[in-house]
Nucleic acid binder design. Structure first.
Length: 241
DNA sequence: GCGACAG
DNA sequence: ATCTTGTCGC
């Protein structure tokens, strides 16, 4: 008996080499983003991130599932596939989602909320990777980025928890610049799907412990960038001449 | 035309 | 993202 909960998933239209076509897909999918708090009790949360191997030839995606209450890691999955396109600012999701979706499908349970590295709607066409992932899977998602892609904001306080709006050229609020820890570079938080602009930063703070990144993102980060093995690796015996 | 530009 | 050791500061 298969205990697999299938990952809800609509068709993901990938990169076909046409930049203009990709931007058009973004404009179309941006209209499907839900910006209200449309999620139930959070029992399982996930973090996803991507790293590269072999000088960029291999795209390596990590998905980590945690207990939303205890933050205990419950499962993790890795997907390694040939890199399908180069990095193009604004089109990140087309480069990374194929691997991310495969990693998520490998988990034996579907998360109630996914934290994705990168932006949600804080994007030139309101469809950063977190929003794209949310629309494609239909799941609630939040984008956690380390740098601004687009938008401006007022000065931010130095203390943990302080935040200011990230605003569009058109005046639209597209995200939150959030100080997750005292005196660290702020994180840029934006809704991906089924989460409001107000709730997104609150959820991020709920899962921040002693590091700058919230646990789901931090753990996925370590796995995707192989920073975990470099820590668990046994001591090498050196032969001194 | 020039500068900016998630990961 | 990735290539990379020690080092400065809280």
């Amino acid at each position: 008996m298969t205990a697999h909960t299938p990952l809800p998933r609509a068709d993901f239209r990938g990169w076909d080499g046409n930049t203009a076509a990709a931007r058009e897909i973004q404009n179309q999918l941006a209209g499907k983003v839900v910006l209200t708090d449309d999620f139930g009790p959070l029992k399982l949360i996930a973090g996803v991130d991507v790293g590269f191997e072999d000088g960029g030839k291999i795209t390596r995606a990590a998905a980590v599932l945690l207990d939303a209450e205890t933050l205990e890691p419950l499962a993790q999955a890795l997907a390694r596939i040939p890199t399908c396109m180069p990095y193009i600012p604004g089109l990140l999701s087309f480069r990374e989602l194929p691997a991310v979706l495969q990693a998520l499908e490998s988990l034996d349970q579907t998360p109630d909320l996914i934290f994705s590295d990168g932006h949600g709607i804080a994007h030139p066409r309101y469809l950063g990777i977190a929003a794209h992932l949310g629309v494609v899977t239909g799941l609630p998602t939040i984008g956690v980025a380390k740098k601004i892609l687009t938008g401006l904001h007022q000065p931010l306080g130095e203390q943990r928890g302080e935040q200011v709006d990230l605003v569009d050229k058109t005046g639209r609020i597209i995200g939150t610049v959030l100080r997750s820890k005292d005196k660290v570079r702020p994180l840029i938080i934006s809704p991906g799907n089924r989460v409001s602009l107000e709730t997104a930063p609150q959820l991020v703070m709920r899962y921040v412990t002693r590091y700058r990144l919230p646990e789901p993102t931090r753990l996925a980060d370590r796995l995707a960038s192989r920073r975990d093995e470099k820590r668990a690796a046994p001591q090498q015996v050196m032969n001194l001449e």
